[in-house]
Simulated scan of single mutants.
Amino acid sequence: MNDKNFEYLKDQIKYTGFGETLENELKEKLQKEEPSFTLNHIAKYGEDTAMATLNFKKSEQSDMYFFNSYKVELQKENSKEALEQTFYINKGSNITMKEAFNLMEGRSVNKDLTNKEGELYNAWVQIDFKQTDDTNGNFKLNQYHQNYGYDLEATLAKHPIKELENPKYKEDLMDSLKKGNLQSATFLKEGNEIKQYIEASPQFKTINVYDNNMQRIDNRHSKEEKQSEIEQVSEKRGAKKQIQSADDDGPEAPKEDKRKRKSQSM
């Protein structure tokens, strides 16, 4: 067994969110020197159970093993079928187990990622449950890059959130949201402090707000989201006429002016 390889894989597993409980099993698998092997990890998030299968493969040129990916099966409390998604390990910042759970819950995660050229870039990542990748059956991962224009700090500033008044609390709040967490926050309304829950929504450049019963309460943002969806569909189809039709009042106004001027001249 390659001791340096063991130490590297042990740290990689730990910092991808699987802790240190797999350490002994990892060592046993490496000592067997098989072409590939898997490790299993189970995590509970509230009433939901997430089962991860970690995939390792030996190099064909050396005795080194590589942690290539992990598959998560999320069993929801009120669902019969488990939701499945495979997350790949790359040179940049890996998606952790908790972040994988948050993504499979439909939330967004902010990550520093690496492109094909090895260059680092930052983006929000969100699973698109309406599209799958034909090559591996995975749901598609949508990315909202820096140029997309989502500013989490500026978005939070639009809301009367008490934690924003304290620099440390503000930083902790933003870090939690970037990890894809549904985070509690204190809203100041008419002199009262109300505990609510928020999550980042980079696709619609806003945040979603929930009450203690996990019911959406930001109806105004919901309308904005619907409008944004319509605009995005129009852009994808290249239907510029549809966008222009929303401004029908524009071209009709001059015609009316012409009729008025004609009647005046008569």
Rank of each mutant, 00 (worst) to 15 (best):
A246H: 04
Y144I: 07
A52Y: 03
T132P: 05
E77N: 13
F129M: 02
E119V: 08
L30K: 10
S184Y: 13
A185V: 13
K80Y: 13
T186Y: 15
K178G: 04
K71Y: 03
M97G: 00
A246V: 03
R107T: 06
N94Q: 13
E190R: 12
T96G: 09
Q232V: 08
L103N: 09
E25F: 00
H159W: 14
M97P: 01
K80L: 13
Y65V: 10
E163G: 07
A123K: 09
F6V: 08
Y121R: 13
K91H: 13
E33F: 14
L113V: 10
G118M: 10
F56H: 12
H159P: 03
S62C: 09
D248L: 06
M1D: 10
R259H: 06
I13K: 03
T96F: 03
I89Q: 14
Q203T: 11
D48H: 07
Q143K: 15
K168M: 09
S176H: 02
P254N: 02
N115Y: 10
E28W: 06
D172W: 03
E163K: 10
P160G: 14
G106Y: 03
P167T: 15
Q31Y: 14
E252T: 06
A50T: 00
S36F: 13
V233L: 15
Y15P: 03
R259M: 05
K76Y: 12
K226L: 12
T49G: 00
K29T: 03
L26I: 05
D151W: 05
Q131P: 04
Y45I: 00
Y197H: 12
K236Y: 08
Q244N: 09
K32F: 05
D248S: 05
K91N: 15
E117Q: 14
I42M: 00
T38W: 01
R259G: 00
N102K: 03
M174I: 11
E20R: 06
L26D: 02
H145S: 10
K258S: 02
P251T: 05
K27M: 07
V233T: 09
K130R: 12
T206I: 04
D134C: 12
I95T: 10
G250S: 07
Q242R: 05
T21E: 04
L54S: 07
N110R: 13
E77K: 15
Y148W: 11
K14G: 00
K10G: 01
M214R: 13
F204Q: 07
M64N: 11
K58S: 07
S93C: 11
D48I: 01
A154C: 01
G137M: 05
F204K: 06
F6S: 04
K71C: 01
E224R: 08
S36P: 01
M266I: 09
Y65P: 10
N5K: 08
K241H: 06
F87I: 05
Q203D: 08
I13W: 01
A246G: 11
M214D: 09
T155C: 03
E77T: 11
I207H: 04
Y169N: 15
R216D: 14
Y121G: 11
I194Y: 14
S263W: 05
T186M: 14
Y150F: 10
A52F: 02
K223G: 09
L83V: 00
Q203K: 15
D128C: 01
D172P: 00
